[in-house]
Design a binder for these strands. Structure first.
Lengths: 335, 335
DNA sequence: AGTGCTCATGGAAACGATTCCATCATCATT
DNA sequence: AATGATGATGGAATCGTTTCCATGAGCACT
């Protein structure tokens, strides 16, 4: 069952073989100063023994475990999957392992996960936060190196100062939303709905702002994180308001739900209802009709966030990445 | 920049406050024997100080870092995303962090990642392996606790013994494929193609076997891991063999490519070409026509694999999870 | 030659947990 | 009462690394 195996080679072995002290080996290997001759002897010994420093020893000594943590609401959502991919690909080039946790957009689970990270002495974390500024503020004060991605946490006043200094990489959904709404109003639409998920308050706010006078609060509906809930929200909206002529889905799961609900209720897209979806997933083009979307550079968001947390040096407060309206066939003039 | 902060509370602080030795604290906290009174005093002190044992110290002492590693070819692929989700949700209940790596179905990257894990003294890993039995055999011999998911590594003879003992959680794609082919032949199809990705040799083998006399090796095409390559493979097959009447896509990215290529080439589904896709992704139903699929319990695969690697005790050699043919509208009788 | 400076170097002290082992008290058995 | 068994307990060693600090050599300058 257990593998006794030959003891793994340690820095001590290398020191012995090279005929130097362990301190010298450590210095050479981590780029400190040493005479050319010593350096060579150490390097030789290290290669000969195939020595790999144990992360365990280093971590304990340095009081911090390497690697980055990444918290997303749902890894099954194409957007967050791409975000993860971006983080992973950046972290790879730094040879840093990435620990991923799923919050399910639930503040309690989020707090749990952060607690676990603290226990692991992880001190760098990229998070798509879900509310509760209190928790994040205390994490930051505890020395956690946080970068927010996709959205930042809403600061309830007293923690504003702490949280405002946390860097964030966001998509410019405000501008994407504005363009989308201009497009729809240009087509003659006035009754425009918004399908949101809890935790999307920033996007909803942007929607409200961009709608201006046209805003009808009754056309803004919220779903929980599940597919069923998204479907229910979409179907409910469509049935309740027959005068609706266009709708914007705040995410790809909501768009999926909208398409499904429309089909179920014999609402024809785009004839009866124009649809624009946040996030350009591969199936948007496969759908019938192909969906007009607000594309977001999900992978870049992850990559940039990882850069911010991994690269030392000054950290800008907020990075905003452009979105793009990709027009396909799911919108038509109001009849 | 740096946060000096108050030193984190250690086991020593707890021992001091409780008036006992550190050894006793450790025993109490890890469920060892202690008198009721001592136990209470220690627990009291621990709660009062809000003590959390540092994973760092424990890891070094135990010569292994906690947590599980998970290696998938592509986290952006819905199937693997769900697999990750299953692993994550099981690991969560064990309070074990999960480190995820993306191999891109590339043996070199895979070896790299495993090397990194060894350095971290991670000793438990769930992997969707991509070839090279040599590497996996040596990893197993080095004491790594491996569980394969979705597929196992093809053993080139000499390492067969080592690798055959590695547990694996697979989907019964052999049976799924057989059902699918029966369905297609029942509809009158004879020229049935298969779109595969590199690393899917097991599935291709199952296809060959299930096809029996009908097999036409020229109708089996391989793509690399990218979307473009999948598209090229599909388009190439469709153009090269006009006599093709049905095709099975070995994964959802390949199915996507098939739909796209068919549309581009004015091949109508299902009128001109029947299509069955591996893996029931949400958009399969949204597609037009809705796609007939071989559904796989991706999340369960991950969950079970995580159980195997996390739960101690005897480990079965292979777990096989059922697949299901979900008939929608992408197949029609041969004309 | 003596003084002071720079540099390479190695011993030893952390880091925070677990665990071996010796000690001591308590209690039952002879 | 002496002996042995049992169980609770704490000191100390250990894990592998980094880093502080003292030492000594080499060199330049006065």
């Amino acid at each position: 069952m257990s593998t006794p195996g030959p003891r793994r080679t340690t820095i001590k072995d290398v020191a012995e073989l090279a005929g130097v002290g362990v301190a010298t080996v450590s210095r050479v290997l981590s780029g400190g100063s040493a005479s050319a001759e010593t350096r060579e002897r150490v390097l030789d010994a290290a290669t000969k023994l195939d020595y790999r420093p144990s992360a365990l020893g280093r971590n304990l000594r340095q009081q911090r475990s390497g690697g980055v943590a990444l918290l997303v609401p749902d890894i099954t959502d194409g957007f967050y999957a791409r975000l993860c991919d971006g983080v992973l690909s950046c972290a790879r080039s730094y040879r840093e392992p990435v620990t991923i946790g799923v919050t399910g957009d639930d503040a309690e689970q989020e707090a749990d996960l952060v607690g676990g990270l603290l226990e692991q002495s992880m001190d760098r974390i990229i998070a798509v936060p879900t509310g509760d500024g209190e928790m994040w503020a205390s994490a930051v004060r505890a020395g956690l190196n946080v970068v927010f991605a996709d959205r930042r946490v809403w600061s309830p006043g007293q923690h504003a100062r702490t949280l405002d200094e946390v860097p964030a990489v966001l998509t410019d959904d405000r501008s994407g939303l504005r363009t989308a709404i201009e497009y729809l109003t240009g087509l003659g639409h006035r009754k425009i709905g918004f399908l949101a998920r809890q935790g999307m308050s920033h996007r909803v706010a942007a929607f409200r702002e961009a709608m201006g006078d046209l805003l009808d609060e009754d056309l803004v509906v919220f779903a929980r994180a599940s597919r069923d809930s998204a479907y229910a929200a979409a179907a409910g909206l469509f049935q309740r308001r027959a005068d609706l002529t266009a709708v914007i889905a705040g995410g790809n799961m909501l768009g999926e739900a909208a398409v499904l609900a429309a089909r179920e209720l014999y609402v024809r897209i785009p004839r009866d209802l124009s649809l624009i979806m946040f996030d350009d997933v591969p199936w948007a083009e496969l759908c019938s009709p192909p969906l007009t979307v607000i594309a977001q550079p999900a992978s870049d968001v992850g990559y940039r966030a990882a850069e911010l947390v991994l690269r030392h040096g000054r950290r800008p407060r907020t990075v905003s990445l452009p979105t793009e309206l990709i027009v396909r066939s799911s919108c038509a003039p109001r009849r």
